[in-house]
Structure formats: C-alpha cells, structure tokens
Design a protein around this nucleic acid. Structure first.
Lengths: 226, 226
DNA sequence: CGACTCCTTGAGCAGCTTCAATCGATGTGG
DNA sequence: CCACATCGATTGAAGCTGCTCAAGGAGTCG
C-alpha cells in the first residue's frame, strides 16, 4: 500500500479449497466489482476474508467519534486490503475508482478447516502489510510537509507510474483532502507543497490529478529530507 | 503495543513441534532473557521467529539514512514483536528494562513443515498488530501535542496501570525522547505536554517516570480531542 | 560530592493551520 | 450552447503551535 512492497509474488493465485462441497479441491477465485464511490465494508463489519486489488484504487479510512477522518492507506493493484482483526473490520473501505477485487479467505484461527497453505499466505500478506505500515510511520514522523508529500508522490510513482517522454507520469485518484488526511496535514498545506514541488522543477501538473515526475532524483532527496 | 489489544488469549502457549528430532512432538517454549539496554535484533537481520514479551518492555525503532530515529512501537508483556518481513527484521529492537521473551516460530511460507496451527497463530498475531498500528495512525494524525501525549498515557494506563489510592499509577520505562520519537514530536514538546497535563489536574508526576492518572475521564477527553 | 544524563523551562522563530477569497473544472438547466 | 451552480484546488494573510537554541534543575552513579 505505501510503496515498497507488492504482494504479487506471494500470490500465484492461491487455490481456495472448499471443504464439504462438490467444489472441493477445485480452484475458484471469486471476483468482486466495486464501482467508484461504493463501499466494500465499514468499520465494525464482520468479515473473514481479505481482498486482493486487481484493478482500481481503494481508500481505507477511519472516522473518529468527533467526525475527523483519518486515511489509513490506499489500496493499489497487487495490494491486499481488509485484514480483519478478531473477525471485524478496522476501517471503512471504499473505491476511489471502479475497482476489481479477488476475494481470499482469512478465517482464523485454524479450527475452520483451511489448509496450512491458505493460512500461510495470509500470514505472509499480513507481515508485508506490517512492513508497509512501518514505512508509513517514518513518513508521518517526518518533519516538513514537503517531505511528506514528496514521499507520498515517490511511493505512487514507484507503484503506479508510467514511463513517459517528460518523466514518470501517473494519475492521482484521490483528492487533496484524502492525501492530507493520509499524511496528517491540511488540504491547503498539501496544495502548497504541490505548488512548491512544481516551482522547483521536481514535478509538473496537468490539472490537479495528473502528475509527472520530471526529476525523480530531486524527489528522492526531498523525500529523504531529514 | 498501543492500547487496545493484548494477544494473551491467542496464545495458550502454542506447542512448538520440532520435526526430525527426538524432541519431535514435545512441547518446548524457548525463553530468552534480555538485559536492559541489550538489542534483540537489528534492522536487516535475518529472522524467522517472533517474540512474545512476558516481562519487561522493549523498544522497536528504525533509523533513517540521515540518523533520525523513529520509534515504531513499545513491546509490553503480552505483546508479540519482531514480525519478520520476507525473512528480515524491519526494525531495531532493544530492551528498555530487563525483559523475558518467549520465542515463537514464524517461518513462512508453508514449505517449512510447520503445522497449520502454528502458522495460524502467527497470522492472528500479525492481524492484531495491524490493528494496533492503525490505532497508532489515528494518534499520529491527531492535531495537538497534548492530544498525542494524552493518547499515549491513556494507552499505557490501560496496559500497565495499577489501581492506587490516588488514581491509576504506572511507570514510564522510556525516556521523553523515546516518547517524542514515537509520537512525532520533540522532547521539549513532550515535556511541556506533561507539564500541562499536570497543571490541569489530569495527572501527577513522581519524578519524571512515575505517572498517576488522577482523572482518567479528563485524559480520555483530551485524548479524543478533535 | 561532583559529573553526567535527562528533564524542564524560556524566548524567538518557522511552519502549519485557519479563515477567506478566487480560480478552475464539471455538470445542469434554460 | 451558454449561464450558472457546485465542488475541489489554489492562493493570500494572519495567528498559533511546535521547533530550535539555550540555560537551568533534578535525579543518578561513580
């Protein structure tokens, strides 16, 4: 979810064995389509599956009692989202774009008849997610808004960027407000950081959503900061 | 760590089966003693086990290229620490106090002969850790330093607090600098927040390390903030 | 008792937030 | 097809919070 890792290699489409059924031993890969704006689940929902994003971008967020929203993560293709804690969802999850998801079982503990392999991939995915979140802690603990935004753009660049003539190009499916809530900033501050990055020549903007990183090295330096 | 969850109930001391050995099928629970200040592992180390804290407090941190330290978490008794990502440690881990740890296997993926149950507890623990970290995101995204420190103290209170005549009492095994790096603040700011909390009557301090929460409700309100 | 480390407090400054206005893109109805 | 409404993004100005630099205090260990 934040840079770094893509769980593709973990998942040679793990077979889902359905016990006590004529489908048993057959591989099935339930697919879900999630139109833009629709919710996949809400905080507090019961759930014993996780979802592998195959298309589109999801937003995971939590809302405080007093209404503030905190964006926890964005789910890009290859990411696994929806890790349930004690059988319940920790976050809201909705689609920033039309999305497609693969449903994977995550029923635990092991008294549910799942095979070891199916539990193991979940553990591996969860460990990767922990690594990703630790990475994000580094960004949140970082000092300046430029550094945070630069880190964010660098992550997206690596994850969703396309090589283009002028640099590495990608679209932001999320609003400035989403980015702000993800980075612990205000929308105005995020906007100003974008403007600065544009002015110093690290990126160009085509509208508000299309970013081209013209100087990845400069972006790296800004992201490392410190 | 961070409040909320304790993994005690997950772990009725899962049996570790040692294959290809005369110990096979025997339950063993390797224990490690870690003196104060000693490191359990460093970022980048190879590792295929996790540790359950049974005594003492650990600190998990990462260091940036430029030397800044970010405290990722504190490990209290009942917590599981050291989740390896792709067989490597993500963080440094050292002991803030003399500590004792139970070693649990975390070798993945499943081609290592571990039984499903042993892999499943790891998955459950990792999912809980994800929940804890998401909780911490809410704190880091929070606005003011008072709110952050209040949230932190509330978490410790719930986790390590003892009922006392004057309120709920506990010791801080970590320095102000550790707390600051955990919350994304400076030591001076943390110190000022402690002073404020004391002045408004939410807590009392006995030296710098012993905290008594005299008004848990006020602390809650401050922690919720928003 | 003195040296050391950590915590606290102070003053000034920088950076983020807040409030407010404008701009731009999108979509709707006349 | 254009005027207008709406929503998000941007920019500006002012205030406040937390950071920086600096000094002093408290606790600890030799």
């Amino acid at each position: 979810m934040y840079v770094s890792y893509d769980t593709d290699f973990l998942l040679k489409a793990p077979a889902i064995k359905v016990p006590n059924s004529r489908l048993s031993r057959q591989r099935i890969e339930p697919m879900v389509r999630l139109p833009e704006g629709q919710h996949l689940f809400y905080q507090g929902d019961e759930g014993d599956s996780v979802y592998r994003v195959t298309k589109g971008v999801l937003r995971l967020s939590r809302v405080t009692r007093k209404g503030r929203q905190q964006v926890i993560a964005f789910g890009y293709p290859g990411d696994i989202v929806g890790f349930p804690v004690a059988g319940k969802r920790n976050t809201d999850c909705d689609a920033l774009t039309d999305a497609e998801l693969q449903v994977l079982p995550a029923r635990l503990p092991a008294d549910c008849g799942l095979e070891a392999a199916n539990v193991a991939y979940l553990a591996v995915a969860a460990l990767f997610e922990i690594g990703n979140m630790q990475e994000h802690f580094m960004t949140l603990g970082r000092k300046s808004s430029r550094e945070k935004v630069a880190s964010f753009l660098r992550a997206l660049m690596r994850r969703a960027g396309d090589e283009a003539a002028a640099g590495i190009r990608f679209e932001l499916p999320m609003s400035r407000a989403d980015i702000a809530e993800f980075l612990g900033l205000r929308t105005e501050t995020v906007s100003r950081a974008f403007t600065e990055l544009r002015q110093i020549g690290a990126i160009t903007l085509d509208g508000a959503q299309i970013v081209t990183v013209v100087d990845p090295e400069m972006l790296d330096d800004l992201a490392e900061g410190d």
